[in-house]
Design a protein around this nucleic acid. Structure first.
Lengths: 210, 210
DNA sequence: GTCATTTTACACTGCACAGTTTACTTTTCA
DNA sequence: TGAAAAGTAAACTGTGCAGTGTAAAATGAC
């Protein structure tokens, strides 16, 4: 058992972080007073300030450290032997699982809500996420080199896939406009996106010139 | 000339509305005090309260009345004579022009920022926008009946198009992550979406079973 | 020119909330 | 077991801001 958080201090700290994550994502940073937060964490307000010298520091801890550590490496390199459709669906599923996972969604809600009116800072935070797209990038490039896909502008393809995925698995969930996705629904979406992309850019499909 | 706003009262009122739209979208409702707002509008604070009894009322005026009146009817019914691709590109262009128009973008920023942590109210506001999708809906249905498109689930097709459009013409602009779209770029995106959708659901394309 | 309406300046109330201080208690661990 | 470290409750400070009250001044209709 590596998990038992040791000192009482650590236990309290975790309680604060969990309560903050929960409250900030639900009511927003401005909608959560430090008194309310302390109460939710079952901790005295002074203890909160012993761990985080200011509210903003707590917010930044969530956005930087916690969100950082929620990042997942989306693996699976291109495999010339396997079916394109299967590989792509797997890649997309991995992306969907990350994007629509509770941890990511909650922290994204905190970050986006907090930086909504500060485009510069928001851009910085979002930038680190774009790294996730690199796996898709590499895979597409390999599939093209292997002559199983055809496209001029890889950025366009990535953007189209990204839009399709986020539009169905991220934005509606971020704003709680829709219920969380079931596994079946995720797979259905992944297959839909795969079909769309391969139909257009897979080698068997007819192409229209841009 | 129908435009000369008559009474001085109306002039002031307009100044307040314009200043509020500008300030709320840039700094957020909470980030704009009534004193600051009055100053921006070149109006005394008391005058603001003479026109709108509370801050929230001003916000709701922007979101309800102003946003309402920014709605555009996206016309063009299905035409069995014309090329599918041309018609669809036109429809999408109309959608893009609306979605990424300054008026819509600014009011959306006010509304989404204001209701970020109130999913229920946000859902209501967003719902009225979905009406815009009806034109696309009708067109797709007509094209299917005319045997020039094939699909099982029209909702899926609409959602895919919507994701593609918003992902490239709305979300990045809403958060000011990207520069405003040029006309050329809009057309490029519209053609990209058209190609993707027709390749998959147009009658000449090969189909994969879901 | 006069009277009603509207605007303005500015002082004022009340509240919510970030952050601090104090006096006291509990936990840790050497 | 006892001293250092961490936690607690509650009162307190200061600030920013929504909204009000008031008396004087500008505007406009007739």
């Amino acid at each position: 058992m590596t998990s038992t958080t040791r000192t009482r201090s650590d236990v309290k700290r975790d309680a604060i972080i969990q309560a903050a994550k929960q409250a900030f994502q639900e009511f927003g940073v401005n909608g959560t007073s430090m008194d309310k937060l302390a109460e939710l964490a079952n901790v005295s307000k002074r203890t909160v300030y012993n761990h985080f010298s200011a509210k903003e520091e707590l917010v930044m801890h969530l956005i930087k450290e916690q969100w950082q550590s929620a990042l997942v490496d989306i693996g699976a390199p291109y495999d010339p032997q396997a079916l394109l459709a299967d590989q792509l669906t797997d890649l997309i599923m991995a992306d969907i699982n990350f994007m629509s996972g509770d941890e990511h969604l909650e922290l994204a809600r905190v970050a986006i809500g907090h930086f909504f009116y500060e485009p510069t800072r928001l851009k910085d935070e979002v930038a680190q996420l774009q790294a996730q797209e690199k796996a898709m990038h590499r895979w597409l490039k390999a599939a093209k080199k292997d002559n199983r896909m055809v496209f001029d502008d890889i950025e366009q393809v990535v953007e189209e896939m990204d839009s399709l995925i986020k539009g169905q698995c991220f934005w509606p969930q971020l704003f709680k406009l829709e219920d969380p996705l079931t596994e079946a629904r995720k797979l259905q979406i992944a297959k839909g996106v795969t079909a769309l992309i391969l139909c257009r850019y897979g080698v068997n499909a007819p192409h229209r010139t841009t």
